[in-house]
């Protein structure tokens, strides 16, 4: 049994690489798009506000797997996406809603007096956002953002359904080679769990540091 674990370990690591690449790319898309969504929902323009709100409400209510299938199989008629691009687009589109709400909450959470003080000093509103609000919102963003990152890593496992050879895919194909599904899935599970533990330990550290630095 152990021999099988060792034998397929290199394959699993190849999968991990793809999983990490996918996580990184989707995270960038989700952060950028999420920030735009947050700004839309905070803007004074009614139309932008409505679009942002509806986008978040709708996309959040649909399972990630459905979004992946929509992007991969349906957009194919209009423009052909590679599996990897489709995965990045759909994970990015879904997680943008999560990050959008996190950003919005954090920006709203910064005391109103800060904005007022800054504008009394004659700062333009872009500078206020960049120099006053965002640095303060950053610490409120960190814990939920890390949490979502660990959700994102877990959800990348869904892309094996469109044939991307990530960790989950490697575990599945190893299992169909050696007929030891329990062993192979558990091996992948251990690897996923390590990522989860590292992230949640990091998170606990961060929270401690932030509490210390702010008290």
């Amino acid at each position: 049994m152990l021999q099988q674990w060792v034998q397929y370990f290199p394959d699993m690591m190849k999968g991990v690489l793809i999983t990490l690449k996918l996580t990184g790319s989707s995270l960038v898309v989700a952060l950028v798009f999420g920030f735009i969504l947050a700004l839309m929902r905070l803007s004074t323009s009614k139309t932008l506000n409505l679009i942002g709100t509806w986008y978040i409400e709708i996309v959040r209510a649909v399972p990630v797997l459905v979004i992946i299938f929509l992007a991969y199989y349906s957009l194919g008629n209009i423009l052909t996406l590679s599996g990897f691009t489709a995965a990045v687009v759909s994970l990015g589109a879904f997680y943008a809603t999560q990050y959008g709400e996190i950003f919005r909450g954090a920006i709203l959470g910064v005391d109103k007096g800060q904005t007022e003080a800054a504008s009394a000093l004659g700062m333009p509103s872009r500078t206020i956002m960049r120099k006053v609000i965002l640095p303060q919102a950053f610490f409120t963003i960190l814990p939920p953002a890390t949490n979502q990152l660990s959700n994102l890593i877990k959800d990348t496992s869904l892309v094996f359904t469109i044939g991307i050879s990530d960790l989950m895919f490697q575990a599945y194909s190893a299992a169909s080679n050696n007929f030891l599904p329990l062993d192979m899935l558990l091996e992948a599970g251990v690897i996923y769990f390590v990522f989860y533990l590292v992230l949640s330990k990091l998170l606990a550290r961060w929270e401690l540091n932030v509490q210390r630095s702010r008290s």
């Binding site: 660990s150 877990k154 959800d155 496992s157 869904l158 094996f160 989950m168 575990a171 599945y172 299992a175 007929f179 030891l180 599904p181 329990l182 062993d183 899935l185 558990l186 992948a188 599970g189 996923y192 769990f193 989860y196 533990l197 949640s200």
Partner: peptide, 23 residues
């Protein structure tokens, strides 16, 4: 709780459906 939260949903489902056939 940690294990349920730490493993991808699809992996858990596959362990129950495919994995358990091994035993």
């Amino acid at each position: 709780v940690e294990i349920i939260r730490g493993l991808p949903a699809i992996l858990q489902l596959f362990i129950i459906f495919f994995g358990l056939t091994q035993i």
